[in-house]
Design a protein around this nucleic acid. Structure first.
Length: 573
DNA sequence: GCCGTTTTCGGCCCGACTGTTTTCAGTCG
């Protein structure tokens, strides 16, 4: 029985939803949700932790009871308590609560009175006009739920950060000109640089009487105004992204920014500290009785609970508060620390520009070096380089390096890892390169053990330097291939190889959790754009964001170093 | 169900908006 952490988290969430419908103690419900999140965030599989005899109740939010339940799930693939609960509440009530506007109380009422157990029942009941007969339900509710059912059937989707940026920039331009508006900032998971966002949270401070709310709902990409109030409004854009706008007074700006940046788990943790000190923290400030003692800036808010400023990317309640208390917060890497890009393509394969154009674009970004890493021959669709063409490219780069000032072009290639773990070019040519990025581009569906062995075998090659896009996932489109991440990282450490954080917004692997795992293991990473055009060299910001979420410091990242120092690190034995 | 800088019992974050209500419950973030 092989059980994934995500499945265990799913079982806990489902259990929590059913408990909620039953009307169980809300803190008990929260305990299951907290545990689900802990499980989801773990870099290591619970199954392997159990195998190694680790005590799961030492994990935060996991006590004796939940540790036993995890053990049961790992051993049997299911949770008997959940099955019991499912028998009591037939159909798919848990799924119904996923519809916006339908919470546990209403779902229970729907089932008790109308025997509604799934989406189809619900739709039928609404169409028969049954819903409005229930107390607390009216025609508006009916209408809203029907719309949500239809939307749900089209599958809800998170928006990737790149697309969210484009919306945010346009909307900010729309709002900044409004009379009386002082600050406009995007908070939420966007500010925490999560790889995808569910919605955008925009925070505004303005003078009294500003018509910013009207301006907001008048934004031309708005499809529907979901709610409109004096301090908060919500709209849905045509492209399916929801936007919340909140207006707060200037004296509350810091508290509100902190509050709306989240995450929820981080906020709860900070509030708990406030409560312990006899303070109350909300989006308007920190209060001692009725008196506001802080709120104008985030720093002020943190200071009131005796914490230093915590960077938004760290605010996930993954240990940042404890680290802050101990003065052990990382000094996060920033874009300015990056001195070069170690993964880029040119016209020779599937890129769009010449080596020279790419190099000049890298120089414009203030880089010292750019590695040209065109595909190799196995990737026929990209017209991958064979040894002969690569040899020619090496000569071209040598010549260009003599001519170009202010940027060093590194001779490299994105070498294909074949199914048997060999590389698809002979070592005679690889040894002429400054470095290699080695990647898997086919046979994604091997079993974890085989895929892991394949990549380790590739690392055995002395010319293997950096593992490119280490999981091969495409966010929302293709799952990561199955690998044992810990074992791979260990193998890289032993051999002097490195991992890449691929900065393409569709990829962003390593994930934040895996970045942190690499750091804890002492494995350094390269943050690379995999640019196929000059413009996409700017994707570096996404990679840096992911690295920051993974607590990485400049020291943890290869390409914060000068080429001279980087060269030493790349040397294998 | 978890957890401990008051605690191994008794707490556990907090406010806005909507719809259906004459004062508030439910939902959401």
């Amino acid at each position: 029985m092989s059980v994934l952490n995500a499945e265990i988290a799913g079982i806990f969430n489902r259990y929590a939803a059913l408990l909620e419908i039953e009307g169980a103690n809300s803190f008990r419900i929260r305990a299951y949700r907290n545990a689900a999140r802990t499980v989801q965030d773990l870099p290591q599989s619970l199954e392997s932790m159990l195998k190694e005899g680790e005590d799961l109740s030492e994990l935060p939010t996991i006590g004796k009871d939940l540790a036993a339940k995890i053990k049961e799930i790992v051993e049997t693939g299911q949770l008997s308590d959940l099955q019991k609960l499912e028998q009591k509440t037939p159909g798919d009530l848990a799924k119904l609560t996923a519809l916006p506007g339908l919470g546990p109380k209403r779902v229970k009422a729907l089932y008790d009175v109308l025997k509604i157990a799934n989406l189809a029942d619900l739709q039928t009941a609404i169409e028969a006009g049954k819903l409005r007969e229930l107390p607390g339900f009216g025609s508006k509710t009916e209408e809203k739920i029907l719309k949500e059912i239809k939307r749900h059937l089209q599958a809800e989707k998170r928006t990737n950060l790149h697309a969210a940026e484009q919306v945010a920039e346009s909307l900010l331009r729309h709002l900044k000109g409004v009379v009386g508006v002082k600050a406009v900032v995007v908070a939420g998971s966007y500010r925490r640089r999560r790889e995808t966002v569910g919605d955008l949270d925009i925070l505004v401070t303005c003078t009294k009487g500003s018509n910013v709310m009207d301006r907001f709902i008048g934004y031309d990409a708005v499809e529907e105004v979901i709610s409109k109030g004096k301090t908060r409004s919500t709209v849905l854009l045509r492209l399916g992204l929801q936007i919340d706008l909140r207006v707060v007074p200037q004296v509350s700006y810091g508290a509100a920014l902190h509050y709306f940046t989240g995450s929820k788990a981080h906020n709860i943790a900070v509030r708990r500290i406030a409560v312990k000190r006899g303070l109350k923290l909300n989006e308007y400030g920190i209060f001692k009785r009725e008196k506001r003692v802080a709120g104008r800036t985030e720093e002020e808010v943190f200071a009131q609970v005796d914490l230093p400023y915590i960077e938004p990317e760290l605010r996930e309640n993954r240990g940042e508060i404890e680290a802050a208390r101990k003065g052990a917060l990382p000094r996060l890497i920033s874009l300015a620390d990056i001195r070069g890009d170690l993964h880029s393509h040119t016209k020779a394969t599937d890129g769009k520009y010449t080596i020279r154009k790419m190099a000049e674009a890298a120089r414009e970004r203030g880089y010292e070096y750019l590695a040209i890493t065109d595909h190799t021959k196995h990737v026929t669709v990209a017209h991958g380089l064979d040894a002969k063409r690569l040899a020619k490219q090496i000569e071209d780069i040598d010549r260009l390096n003599k001519k170009l000032e202010g940027i060093m072009i590194l001779k490299s290639a994105e070498v294909d890892i074949l199914e048997d773990g060999s590389l698809d070019l002979p070592n005679e040519i690889l040894k002429e390169l400054d470095l290699t990025v080695c990647s898997v581009h086919y046979k994604f569906d091997l079993a974890a053990q085989k895929q892991t062995a394949r990549i380790i075998r590739a690392m055995d090659n002395p010319y293997f330097n950096i593992l490119g896009h280490p999981t091969g996932r495409l966010i929302g489109q293709r799952d990561p291939y199955a690998i044992n991440m810990r074992r791979l990282m260990m193998a890289a450490l032993e051999r002097g190889c490195y991992f890449e954080v691929n900065a393409q917004p569709e990829r962003l692997d390593l994930t934040d959790i895996h970045c942190r795992m690499a750091k804890e293991m002492g494995l350094r990473v390269a943050i690379s754009t995999d640019a196929h055009t000059t413009a996409t060299l700017d994707y570096m910001r996404f990679g840096v964001g992911q690295a920051r979420r993974g607590w990485l410091e400049p020291e943890d990242v290869l390409n914060t170093r000068s080429w001279k120092n980087l060269k030493k690190l790349l040397k294998r034995r």
